[in-house]
């Protein structure tokens, strides 16, 4: 046995001894997670918004499952308040991949009466939870793959990669399943489901570096462009038909880009002249403001708003 082992041991070529870069490692981990979802869950879905994190997820799904089709449809919960460029990109990307895209709309939930806004101007962002849970029930999804990262927010920092949600979609931070090695437990009962975050261990910089390495296409609003802006609470609020200027607002035309893309009413751009991914990576590497801190018009209201939304079934 030993003699055999010695003679049969293959010469180690350069490729075998090369170290994996951090992106190689993160990619391999994410592919492994996606394949665990496919292997363990019977009706998963991948949440695709057209944003940069879920664009990375689609690339990882290609790496995980090609030349086969994805073993899940793409699902988008649309607040109706998304940028046109992002929605167009979403539809085009799904078509290019030849994968099925399911869109469920918060406006439909409003029409059904399951989402009731406190006022017509209230942000629909947190109400996505209701529409998401309705879509989960309608399709019987037992797992939803999302692009959340642990570096985004402190509630996320403590969330599992396979995060169990009860039949009300609630996350219970005190009662999470222990998650050891890469042995993921995706078991759930009827009505319950898992939220799975394959890029949990990625940072914003990792995402941009991966986009550059894989040469991934992005919606145009991620790059610097001119946009009418009102300064509010230290953030740049975009002036749009959904978020018109208020009396007394000073509207400025600024060169901005979006670091994160979501509901128009709660996502703010940052001032930037970066028109390429390489330029964005440079800015990201030296920024002093976190992604959510620079861009979220909603999470600043309370220290715990993400945690609260997650307990209510949010992504």
């Amino acid at each position: 046995m030993n003699a055999l082992a010695a003679s049969a041991a293959p010469a180690i070529d350069a490729a075998a001894t090369k170290e994996l870069s951090h992106l190689d490692w993160l990619e391999a981990e994410a592919i492994h997670i996606l394949r665990e979802v496919a292997g363990q869950c019977s009706r998963p879905a991948l949440l695709f918004s057209g944003g940069k994190d879920s664009i990375c997820l689609l690339r990882l799904a290609e790496k995980a499952f090609r030349p086969g089709r994805f073993p899940f449809p793409l699902l988008h919960i649309d607040t109706g308040h998304n940028y046109r460029e992002v929605i167009d990109f979403r539809d085009r990307r799904a078509a290019e991949l030849g994968e099925r895209l399911i869109v469920r709309s918060v406006e439909d939930s409003m029409a059904r009466g399951t989402v009731v806004l406190k006022s017509p101007g209230e942000s629909r962002n947190k109400h996505q939870s209701v529409t998401l849970l309705e879509a989960i029930e309608e399709h019987g999804f037992d797992a939803c793959i999302g692009g959340a990262r642990r570096d985004e927010e402190k509630a996320r920092a403590k969330e599992r990669i396979f995060s169990f949600r009860d039949e009300f979609g609630q996350w219970d931070p005190k009662n999470q399943r222990p998650e050891l090695w890469n042995l993921y437990n995706a078991r759930s009962g009827p009505g319950e489901n898992m939220r799975v975050f394959p890029i949990s261990n990625w940072t914003e910089l990792d995402v941009w570096q991966y986009i550059e390495r894989e040469r991934l296409e992005l919606p145009s609003i991620y790059f610097a462009h001119l946009r009418p802006i009102v300064r509010r609470n230290g953030l740049l609020a975009p002036v749009t038909p959904v978020t018109p200027a208020q009396p007394g607002d000073v509207v400025e035309e600024l060169q901005v880009r979006f670091r994160t893309v979501g509901d128009i009413t709660c996502t703010a751009p940052v001032e930037s002249s970066a028109t390429t991914v390489a330029a964005i990576i440079e800015e990201t590497a030296v920024t002093t403001i976190s992604e959510r801190g620079a861009t979220r018009l909603d999470d600043q209201t309370s220290e715990a708003s993400m945690e609260q939304r997650k307990k209510e079934g949010y992504f």
């Binding site: 951090h22 570096d151 402190k154 509630a155 920092a157 940072t203 715990a304 945690e307």
Partner: peptide, 27 residues
């Protein structure tokens, strides 16, 4: 970080933090 922890004055669980030195990424 969690509200649930602040309410009870305990730390619930393993948290993951990230930093990079430019030559290596750390978790």
């Amino acid at each position: 970080g969690l509200q649930a922890e602040r309410e009870q004055g305990i730390t619930i669980d393993v948290a993951y933090r990230y930093f990079s030195t430019g030559t290596r990424k750390y978790i």
